[in-house]
Design a protein around this nucleic acid. Sequence first.
DNA 1: TAAATAATGAACATAATGTTGTTTATTTAT
DNA 2: ATAAATAAACAACATTATGTTCATTATTTA
Lengths: 201, 201
Amino acid sequence: MNGKTDLRVLRTRQSIRMAFYELIEEKGYEAITIQDIADRAMINRNTFYLHHQNKPDLLDTCMDELLSELKNAVVLCPFNMSPFHISTLETVMQTVLEHISRNTTFYYAMLIEENRIYQFRAKMENIIKDKLNEGWILAQGNSPLALSKELLLEYLVSSFMGIVMWWIKNDLPLPAGEAASQFSRIVAYGHLKAAGIAVGE
Amino acid sequence: MNGKTDLRVLRTRQSIRMAFYELIEEKGYEAITIQDIADRAMINRNTFYLHHQNKPDLLDTCMDELLSELKNAVVLCPFNMSPFHISTLETVMQTVLEHISRNTTFYYAMLIEENRIYQFRAKMENIIKDKLNEGWILAQGNSPLALSKELLLEYLVSSFMGIVMWWIKNDLPLPAGEAASQFSRIVAYGHLKAAGIAVGE
DNA sequence: TAAATAATGAACATAATGTTGTTTATTTAT
DNA sequence: ATAAATAAACAACATTATGTTCATTATTTA
């Protein structure tokens, strides 16, 4: 009795995931049946149930697996202080976009397609939120704010994800660095100034 | 043969919708079966199929019905120029929040709950987007921008919806006017300035 | 090579969908 | 007021997917 897992188990699990990814791209999550997965993975339908409770359970496992890669990349982003947030946001955004550009089809299926998985967006948002929150604590200490911290954080994450989704939906129309820089400029200075429009007080 | 609809039809349709709304709040959209709806509406399951193709079709009808009310409210918001966008955003936000506060349970079920309906958010975003786009055209003409107009619009809508969802999720923690004002300040001047933190160039 | 265990295959119970055809009840138009 | 039109009810059916059970076969590990 060793720590190793039976080779058959590893093989089966991998087949299931590959099949699942392919099918998501082909027909969307909702339309997939367990039988579809079994057929594609070339296993018995029963075997599926030896590894996953049901379809949502499989989805969860897969999302976590893929997002842990994103999370690792984001966690490594340095916090550049003074004024920390602007460059940090830019770095994190660029990191995320670059990661996505390496897995476009999957992210497209999860975030953009008709049959997209909204939980996936929620999980991504949490990764971003954790990172920003961490930076916030580091840089901010506990000086009072003119507005709700929760509101501010929600604002940052929402706009962040909005740009990310826009970027994917439009087929990566700008270089990752350029999109990241436009985003951080808007967030830091306001949309009018960032757009080059004079702001009357 | 008149323009009027048979009273039985009107009665049935109304029962179906009421039943549907109740069930969404009780168990979430996905868990609802046609039989559930029929039972609650006290009609035969067959009768359901006389009025709707299937569950998604019913959902669509209901969302459109409810969002048209929101749309009407938003469309009526005036565009205050100079600098138009800031106060317009604030007005639209306040209008939306006030509308939501009159239908909290439904919006909560559609936007926040575990079994929320992501299409609903997308439809709301389109309403906001249309409004902002209209204002943009009015105020902006065709002077060149320092950043992509599409990106800017996506940014505005995403942050807008983020605040809206935050507000609902946290049980309407601020007066609608206050939340609207904080939002417009962030968007107009940037998050650091809005938060009261000095921005070093 | 024996023991452990993963995968298969077949069967079954359950639940939901969507359709068809007939009958009953209600509504509208004359 | 009544006949014609039609909505709703009722019952039956085919189809599809889910999740479980159990005996058998094959593979892997120790």
